[in-house]
Design a protein around this nucleic acid. Structure first.
Lengths: 198, 198
DNA sequence: CCTACCGATCGGTAGG
DNA sequence: CCTACCGATCGGTAGG
């Protein structure tokens, strides 16, 4: 169970590469930057990975948002729909607040690799999406107007849009746009923006 | 009012650069690619723009999603909240279905330029956001649980998340995830995912 | 694992 | 004298 020196170097390369890719993009990140930050020479990297793209792929396979989000959602426990949506949404937002670089990684893959890995991952994860849908279905008051995948797709895309906008707004300070925004989002997911007129 | 040859070339450079940037990213796009697609020599580009970045900036200033979306939203007319949300959402989705490159441009700017231009634009557009909020407020049955900017921010981030997920799902064919998805989104925005239990 | 170096290509500019 | 543009090449850097 000892960790070899090669393995340590391997992890250092992946970690620093993720940091650089997520802040600069794939093409703008150089192998020399990765080498410098990982504390190895340029040539040495190629003893661990055959190319820059292979480093990116290794990171995608370990850290893509689809992968890091779904298991977390699987763990959420709640006794009613409101608690479930609240807990699940908080969980997802928590993950991306802790790891905004995963969101950037996702966007970079969509642009610079045409989203091929995101699409492959999504194909593989459809069973997990069904599992998440079943969680929704276990609450009797969830809407019956959408099929399972559509419900999950709509939920995830709403939360993801929120996460992205938060990352953007975090830097400009317009407090009124970000204050209580998660609570507002959860209310909209549960009840929409139209008041009951009864 | 004649259009000079310089102006035609200028527009050709901007158009082709947008196409290349949006599909490859900024760093991965070369001045030679832009020159070739625009039908001018590499050297000629520099009679129009002093650098690759200046081309990108000119495109951002003309085509950023924030700029192309808000005026369109301003035009929407509707007699009740449901019609307004339906029309506004359709309008936004229409724009991005016609111009997915604007969405890519936005993501590229966020990654490769740290979102500085998006943030500057957002600051400038806050009055327009207020205007859009007032459109919501003109309907008596809109929720009163959010302030103006928060309401608009929540609405826009939801629609944007949907647009992004559609771009991703368009390529893989899991029909059940995309069928009637816009109708589903509008229902969720209006009423949420919780059924009325009356 | 490093130093030195390759074929090629990068963004940008020279003179005419 | 101006504009728009060319062929050739600059100093540096890319992935390997």
């Amino acid at each position: 169970m000892t960790i070899s020196k090669a393995e340590i170097t391997n992890q250092a390369i992946l970690e620093e590469a993720l940091s650089l890719f997520s802040t600069q993009g794939f093409a703008a990140t150089t192998m020399r930057q990765i080498a410098a930050k990982a504390g190895v020479s340029l040539g040495s990297i190629y003893n661990h990975f055959s190319s820059k793209e292979e480093i990116f792929l290794a990171i995608i396979k370990a850290k893509h948002p689809f992968l890091t989000m779904l298991p977390a959602l699987g763990e959420v426990e709640a006794s009613d729909l409101r608690s479930f949506v609240t807990a699940a949404t908080k969980k997802v937002i928590e993950i991306y607040e802790e790891h905004p670089e995963y969101v950037n990684l996702f966007m970079i893959e969509v642009i610079e690799f045409k989203g091929v890995h995101a699409q492959l991952l999504l194909q593989k994860l459809i069973p997990d999406l069904e599992g998440f849908a079943n969680r929704f279905r276990s609450y009797p008051d969830v809407t019956d107007e959408m099929n399972d995948l559509l419900l999950v797709r709509t939920y995830i895309s709403i939360v993801f849009g929120y996460v992205l906008s938060t990352m953007l707004l975090n830097d400009i300070q317009v407090k009124t746009i970000t204050d209580h925004s998660m609570e507002a989002l959860i209310e909209v997911i549960l009840h929409g923006i139209q008041r009951k007129t009864e």
